[in-house]
Amino acid sequence: VTVHVDGVEYDFDNPEEALKFAKKVAEDKNGTYEVHGNQIRVT
């Protein structure tokens, strides 16, 4: 699973970890996250 944040890609073997990371980053920057299959984009 790849999490995209501001043009940087973070790869996770564990989808739950990826989702947790995306949620935290989105909260920290008052943004949102979208899941597209095995890609998660934080905006």
Rank of each mutant, 00 (worst) to 15 (best):
K20T: 12
Y10A: 02
K24L: 09
G31T: 08
A22P: 01
D6E: 09
A18Y: 00
E17R: 05
V5Q: 02
V1Y: 15
N38M: 05
Q39C: 13
H36W: 11
N38Q: 07
Y10K: 03
F12Y: 05
V35H: 06
V8W: 09
E17V: 06
K24P: 01
N30R: 10
D11G: 13
V8K: 13
V5G: 01
Y33F: 12
K23M: 13
K24M: 11
T32S: 13
V35M: 10
K29S: 13
N14S: 13
T43F: 15
V3A: 02
L19M: 09
N30I: 04
A22I: 02
V1S: 06
G7Q: 05
V35C: 08
H36R: 11
K23T: 08
Y33H: 03
K20N: 13
G7P: 02
V1T: 10
V3D: 00
E9Q: 14
D13M: 09
G31F: 05
P15T: 12
V5D: 04
G31W: 10
V35A: 05
E16V: 11
V25T: 10
V42M: 03
F21P: 01
D28C: 12
F21A: 01
T43D: 11
Q39F: 12
E17K: 06
P15C: 13
A18P: 00
N38V: 04
Y33A: 04
Q39W: 10
V3M: 02
E34D: 06
R41M: 15
V35Y: 08
H4T: 11
V42N: 02
V42A: 01
K24A: 12
D28G: 09
H4D: 06
N38Y: 06
V42P: 02
L19Q: 04
T43I: 15
D11W: 15
E17G: 04
V35P: 03
V25K: 09
P15A: 14
E17N: 06
V25R: 07
D28N: 10
T2Q: 07
K29A: 09
G7V: 03
D11I: 14
H36S: 12
T43Q: 12
K23Q: 13
V42Q: 01
T43G: 07
K23S: 08
V3F: 02
D13N: 11
V1P: 05
G37S: 05
G7A: 05
V25Y: 07
H4K: 06
V3S: 00
T32R: 12
E34S: 11
P15M: 15
E9K: 13
F21W: 10
T32G: 08
E34N: 06
Y33T: 04
Y10R: 03
E34F: 10
K23H: 08
V5R: 02
Q39A: 10
G7F: 05
K23N: 06
A18K: 00
N38C: 07
K24Q: 13
Y33K: 01
K23V: 10
D13C: 11
T43M: 13
H36G: 05
E16N: 08
E16R: 07
G37I: 04
A26R: 02
V1D: 03
A26V: 06
Y10P: 00
T43P: 04
T43A: 07
T2A: 05
E34C: 13
H4M: 11
V42H: 02
V3H: 00
H4A: 07
F21L: 02
K29G: 09
G31R: 06
V35S: 05
E27W: 12
H36N: 13
T32A: 09
D11L: 15
N38H: 08
V8N: 09
Q39Y: 13
R41A: 09
K20E: 14
D13L: 10
T32Y: 13
P15L: 15
E34A: 08
N14K: 07
I40Y: 04
A18N: 00
A22N: 00
H36T: 11
N30E: 07
G7S: 05
N14A: 07
E34K: 08
F12L: 02
V3K: 00
K20F: 10
V3N: 00
K24V: 06
V25L: 11
D13S: 11
E16A: 10
V8F: 12
V42S: 01
R41K: 14
T2Y: 06
E16L: 10
A22G: 03
V1R: 04
F12T: 00
G37Q: 06
V8Y: 11
N14P: 01
V35E: 05
G31K: 04
I40H: 01
A26K: 03
K20M: 13
T43R: 10
P15S: 11
I40W: 03
T32M: 09
A18F: 00
N14W: 06
G7H: 05
N38K: 05
E17I: 06
Y10D: 01
Y33N: 01
V42L: 04
V25I: 13
I40E: 01
V8L: 12
N38R: 06
V25F: 07
V35F: 09
A22K: 00
P15R: 14
K29N: 13
A18L: 01
R41V: 15
V3R: 00
V25M: 14
H4N: 09
I40K: 00
V3E: 00
G37P: 04
A22F: 01
V1M: 14
V5W: 06
A22T: 03
E34H: 11
Q39V: 15
K29Q: 11
A22D: 01
G37N: 05
D13F: 08
K29Y: 15
I40R: 00
E16W: 11
E34T: 13
V5M: 06
D28V: 10
E27T: 12
D6K: 04
V5T: 04
D11T: 14
D6A: 07
Y10Q: 03
V25C: 12
N14R: 07
T32I: 10
Q39M: 11
T2V: 12
V8G: 05
D28I: 12
L19K: 05
G7I: 03
F12E: 01
L19I: 12
R41I: 15
I40L: 03
N30G: 14
T32N: 09
I40P: 00
G37M: 05
V42F: 05
F12P: 00
V1K: 04
V1G: 04
E16Y: 10
H36E: 13
E16T: 09
R41N: 14
L19T: 05
N30L: 07
P15H: 15
L19W: 07
K29C: 12
A22Q: 01
Y10S: 03
N38I: 04
Y33L: 11
V42G: 01
I40C: 01
Y10G: 00
A22R: 00
H4L: 14
Y10T: 04
T43W: 15
V1A: 10
A26H: 02
K24G: 07
L19R: 05
E34Y: 12
K20Q: 13
R41Q: 14
V5N: 03
Q39G: 05
D28Q: 14
V35T: 05
E17L: 08
G37T: 04
E17T: 08
G7W: 04
A26F: 03
V3L: 02
N38W: 05
N30Y: 07
K23W: 05
D13V: 11
A26C: 13
V35Q: 07
D28E: 15
Y10C: 04
K24T: 09
H36D: 14
K20S: 13
G37D: 08
I40A: 01
Y33G: 01
H4S: 10
H36V: 14
V8E: 12
V42D: 02
K20W: 10
N30V: 05
R41E: 10
A18G: 10
F21T: 01
T43S: 12
H36A: 10
T2H: 06
H36M: 13
E17F: 04
Q39D: 11
E9L: 12
V3W: 02
K23I: 14
D13Y: 08
D13I: 10
T43L: 15
F21I: 01
K23P: 01
H36L: 13
G31A: 09
N14H: 07
K24S: 10
A18V: 01
H4W: 14
E9H: 12
G37V: 04
K20G: 08
D6R: 04
F21G: 00
N30S: 08
N14C: 11
K24H: 09
E9G: 09
K23A: 11
V25E: 09
G37L: 06
N38G: 06
K29W: 14
A22Y: 02
E27Y: 13
H4E: 09
F12D: 00
V35N: 04
A18Q: 01
V35G: 03
D28A: 14
V5K: 02
R41W: 15
D28W: 12
R41C: 12
N30F: 08
E34G: 04
T32K: 11
K23G: 05
K24W: 10
K23R: 10
G7D: 08
V35R: 07
Y33W: 11
E16G: 08
V5F: 09
T2N: 04
H36I: 15
G7E: 06
E27V: 10
T2I: 11
T2R: 09
K24I: 08
D6S: 06
H36P: 00
G31H: 04
I40T: 01
T32L: 07
N14I: 07
G37F: 05
P15N: 09
D13K: 11
A26D: 02
